[in-house]
Design a protein around this nucleic acid. Structure first.
Lengths: 256, 256
DNA sequence: ATTAGAAAGCTAACGGTGTTCACTTTAATG
DNA sequence: CATTAAAGTGAACACCGTTAGCTTTCTAAT
């Protein structure tokens, strides 16, 4: 018998965990300096001091390893975002959303290679086609990286829903919600259907959803362009971001 | 002697051109069904009926072949965009810009694999760092794909400049140009510096540039998200695009 | 303490990749 | 017709991910 009598992890389990950590560390290093396509299973094996075949005791394939890595990155991003949001009080929904945007951007820019890897995993189809079912039902069934991607979105979406409730209670902004162009019945329904469930998790008025999706597109564009070096503004990016965020807030009908 | 007495291409040159076309066709086919990473030099050789080594008489490397392919795609996109813009008269700058956006989107979505390949070539650093020099000076020195990417942007940027002149002449929109948030001296200068040169090719007032960059970010976000399947709206995308474009026009201070 | 069994590792191989070098064939030119 | 440059071949090199079968090592129960 081993130390397992104490209920803790077996010696073997500890060893295994350590090996996995070593493997991932090597993979991360390679990713950082050669990009996603530069991660080589054999190179990892060389690094860890083991035969290539041995790695298959720990991961089903190279792709599986990269997938796990991708999940880790999402978890890191989510953690750091959550922390950053929690720097503001729970009711300061606006500040918390700003923190989300800021965090997303700075993380993606500071870790372009990881971000690159994450983008290389296309959003699973299941993310948007939960027709009929509640989100929670299919949530666990989603592939791990899509689930995490949604989790990340949720951090911001929840704040929006809360902010809407708050604003409504205080009789804030315009009565009908943020200004938005007229849309057809079909588009309105699709927006409500697809977004109110997986972005905010509860029924939210259409104008809010529309503005949210519009803002989300803008943030995505900004972050991807900057991370990949195709954003025209480069030296004063911070300020440019701030003005963009301000503009989006204005689109929400928020004066401040 | 051959038919070269007439000044036309040699028989050998014709043969060579035909072989190159065959090689590219095979590469395109593989790209279309397996993505950028699925293009194999050996598979192409098999396809064309030749030894792998023989391909090196036509391309320096697989990467060089992919680069040429990327350039071809840009040329196709530029051509189809230009045609689409020319469906409107030369003075209908607004319509022409709309055509640009629409063309960009539909091409990217209809040819995601090609678009994917194009995005995989990061914007060359030279694209934005032409400090001091006129654009034309360094233009030829840029790497081929960056040059074409700029050429594509130019199609829209030129229209913006022309539209600005037109609007000014007619005493249209607001006197100071489109509304924009206050920005620091530094950001203003960078926008003028980087953009007025490589996007529109002539001096344009700051608010116009700012609005243009903002719109460009939005369009980029829309197109990339839709092409990669992460846009929340899926069934009514056309309408969603139209509302987005309308919103952007409104940001330019255009009522219509 | 000994033994059954699982976990981990190794060797060797298979089929694939991009690329290079020396050599041969092919075709156009003086 | 002989020369010469282009086009193509074949074999090799160094890598890659993955699999199968065998051996070692360590755990857990007898």
């Amino acid at each position: 018998m081993t130390s397992n009598t104490a209920g803790g992890p077996t010696r073997r389990e500890r060893m295994r965990a350590e090996t996995i950590a070593e493997i991932k560390a090597s993979a991360r290093a390679q990713l950082e300096e050669s990009g996603p396509s530069g991660v080589s299973l054999r190179a990892i094996a060389r690094d860890v001091g083991v035969t290539p075949a041995a790695l298959y005791r720990y991961f089903d394939s190279l792709d599986a390893l990269l997938t796990e890595l991708c999940c880790d990155f999402y978890d890191e991003l989510i953690a750091v975002t959550r922390d950053s949001m929690d720097a503001s009080p729970p009711e300061a929904h606006l500040e918390r959303m700003k923190a989300w945007v800021w965090c997303f951007r700075s993380w993606a820019v500071a870790n372009r290679r990881r971000f690159e890897l994450m983008l290389s995993f296309p959003e699973g189809d299941g993310a948007l086609t939960l027709d009929g079912r509640k989100l929670e039902d299919g949530f666990e069934a989603l592939d791990p990286v899509t689930r995490r991607s949604l989790e990340h979105s949720h951090l911001c979406g929840r704040e929006l829903a809360a902010f809407w409730r708050q604003t409504e209670a205080e009789g804030g902004t315009a009565p009908g919600g943020p200004p938005m162009p007229e849309v057809s019945e079909a588009l309105a329904e699709e927006l409500q259907d697809k977004c109110s469930r997986f972005i905010v998790g509860e029924q939210v008025p259409l104008p809010w959803i529309y503005s949210f999706v519009s803002a989300w597109v803008r943030v995505f564009g900004l972050v991807v362009m900057e991370a990949f070096g195709s954003l025209p503004v480069q030296e004063n990016v911070d300020e440019f971001y701030k003005t963009q965020v301000m503009t989006m807030l204005r689109d929400f009908g928020i004066s401040e």
